[in-house]
Design a protein around this nucleic acid. Structure first.
Lengths: 248, 248
DNA sequence: CGCGGAAATTCACATATGTTATATGTTTGC
DNA sequence: GCAAACATATAACATATGTGAATTTCCGCG
């Protein structure tokens, strides 16, 4: 892990854009958001970003890369509870000062911005709209967790995998990380996807090949291609509204 | 549904006790909490408490009875995402002003207290400790959702059912709703339990009888008896720490 | 450039859980 | 107080998914 205090200009926009998606911010507030993170940590793939129990305070914002949150099962397996993409807040425990009892691990080389909590308090007092935006992000995350619950409880393997691909496509697209033709990077192992979806590695593999044979998804070398996202969404009953801040 | 403005004195204590579990409150704040709900709705079993999309503003607090939150599956099935017991806030959408896209339905005759949002804002401004407590409750709920996710993703039927029984036992106990000998009311249908755990009704039934044969749980006529909660907890790797506000 | 280890793939087989059906209580509404 | 609707229980059978192992492909690294 490498630490630095000099941001790349792209990073500050990543988080700002996310907040602007869920709430309008005045120019002054936008500037405050840009300058909020003062510490940056770079992780290589499969490094712990947060280790259970160990909490150094601060709000952590994903700025580049990919990570996931997970819980341990008694027999050593893991259940991944969320994938964290650029723009996401890593965990919202700071809101209620309750540390999350979960590990966060990077899946690809990643950058995380850290906002000191006192600094955040000051900013938020000055621009309460920022707090509103953050709370909306928290609500969306809760909503995504519940949708994953629906997948595990009510969808078969094909729909689970397809639905997750739709979700990643949708989220990465909004973050500007999908290239033309529905092509995006998903630096995930099939085994890791299984850990999120409650499926064995072997069955994830079978399912992916089924999707490939259906012409709905191609996944090779960490690159996913969705030639026809609408069809896939229809097949899996993917409705992205759960990822939006649903105001009036 | 019957509406009234005259509370039973027990009701106000239910919610107050919950908040006191997660954060200390001054006497004045406690009094404010007691007087916060001004409208009370009584539902009979299987009535909609909140219907998707329909949102009349206000924070809803469960004061007696049992309810659940659920999402619809495309084929008409439902995925229950949470059980709501006395003391629980029905949904935390009001925090970020994003209405939850879920239905809430009563499973037994229930009372719900409604706190007007303007009134809540006033109270919370006067006693910020109350907002802290509410946010901690929200964090606990998120944590419970994730634990259910772990169940669906990583536990077999026996452990899923056992774990849920442990959780309900634990939560109801803290609400003072467990009688001596580990006896408590669980006015749930086996089919409804299946809708929460991603199991068919038939298999829930099989599993319950297995638990009965093991002498770990008896469930008859909406009454659950856990003769040896510790053994059951051990079997299912139930660790209640995820239900606590984990401050230092 | 080639080596070593990790992913991906494939196969045969095991099994937990789903499905359909029927019988038997048990509420509930009229 | 009856009848309809619902909840539980049980059985036989179907199947989606898991397991263990072997093979191949890929990728980072020296």
């Amino acid at each position: 892990m490498i630490e630095s205090t000099s941001p790349s200009p792209r990073w500050s926009e990543t988080w700002l854009n996310r907040l602007l998606e869920v709430a309008p911010l005045s120019d002054a507030a936008q500037d405050a958001v840009r300058r909020a993170p003062q510490l940056f940590r770079q992780f290589s793939a499969r490094e712990h970003v947060v280790r259970d129990g160990v909490r150094d305070p601060g709000m952590r914002v994903m700025l580049s890369g990919l990570a996931c949150r997970y819980k341990h099962l008694p027999d050593g397996r893991r259940q991944i509870t969320a994938f964290i993409i650029p723009g996401d807040v890593c965990d919202f425990g700071f809101i209620s000062d309750s540390p999350v009892s979960q590990d966060i691990i990077s899946l690809a080389p990643s950058t995380i911005g850290i906002v000191d909590l006192d600094r955040l308090a000051t900013i938020v007092e000055l621009y309460p709209e920022i707090m509103t935006a953050i709370l909306r992000c928290a609500a969306i995350e809760q909503s995504a967790t519940q949708e994953l619950l629906v997948s595990l409880g009510g969808r078969n393997a094909l729909h689970r995998v397809g639905h997750l691909l739709c979700e990643m496509h949708h989220r990465l697209d909004r973050a500007g990380l999908v290239r033309a033709g529905g092509v995006f990077e998903l630096p995930l192992t099939q085994s890791e996807m299984g850990e999120a979806l409650g499926l064995s590695t072997v069955h994830v593999n079978r399912t992916i090949q089924m999707l490939r044979r259906l012409g709905l998804a191609i996944w090779r070398d960490r690159i996913v291609t969705l030639p026809d996202p609408e069809s896939l969404a229809r097949l899996c009953a993917f409705d992205p509204s759960y990822l939006k801040a649903q105001r009036d």
